[in-house]
């Protein structure tokens, strides 16, 4: 899984495979996405503006507003809380994302590697609304592209990123519970489709 695997340790995905898992249903797909590096970025007190502009030049665009996500080239970012974002980039090219980001923002920000803290499951297909309303209280039918909602699915705290309303979403939850999150999603899909 990428050039940093040249050492003697072989990576596994959050769902435990050597390759990401794909589950296909009639008109709907659940895809495990494991090729992203993640780093959290928090503004230091008083340096919020400095951080914003440093992040902007690093990412190639502004950090997203509250409850939103955006992407600029390789980089995507979503809002996690006041003055706190998660930045994502392809793992192959950016395994050391956290270090690079820290270098870019310096003392204006606190950066923490989060790559393996999460599992990401992408859902694609026409029945996404029906599936998601069995899983979380987010008002998905009123959602728009770029929404990033922290919500809870079967007792698991997750980020729900809307890529295309009703059609494409990313669900990002805690890695240790990847199997439970996957089970919840598959169960909900089977209940609907």
């Amino acid at each position: 899984m990428g050039k940093f695997d040249n050492h003697g340790l072989k990576a596994v995905t959050p769902l435990g495979g050597f390759e990401p898992r794909v589950d296909a249903f009639t008109g709907l797909l659940i895809r495990e996405v494991s090729d992203c590096a993640l780093a959290s970025l928090a503004a230091r007190q008083g340096d919020e503006d400095v951080l914003q502009s440093a992040a902007k030049s690093f990412l190639g665009g502004s950090l997203p507003e509250a409850a939103a996500w955006n992407e600029h080239g390789d980089f995507a970012a979503w809002w996690m809380g006041p003055d706190l974002w998660m930045v994502s980039a392809p793992h192959d090219e950016h395994e050391l994302l956290a270090a690079a980001l820290k270098e870019a923002v310096g003392d204006a920000g606190s950066v923490v590697e989060q790559t393996d803290g999460w599992c990401r499951l992408d859902m694609e297909g026409s029945r996404c609304f029906d599936v998601l309303e069995r899983l979380c209280n987010a008002n998905v039918r009123a959602g728009k592209p770029g929404d990033a909602t922290r919500t809870s699915m079967e007792h698991l705290g997750v980020f729900l990123l809307c890529r295309e309303p009703g059609q494409r979403y990313s669900i990002i939850g805690p890695r240790s519970s990847a199997a439970s999150l996957h089970h919840a999603l598959v169960t909900a899909v089977n209940a609907v489709i």
Partner: peptide, 15 residues
């Protein structure tokens, strides 16, 4: 509230 501190959990990120 004026302390410059940032917190985040990394429990899951490291084996």
């Amino acid at each position: 509230p004026d302390m410059d501190v940032q917190l985040i959990s990394t429990t899951e990120a490291w084996a």
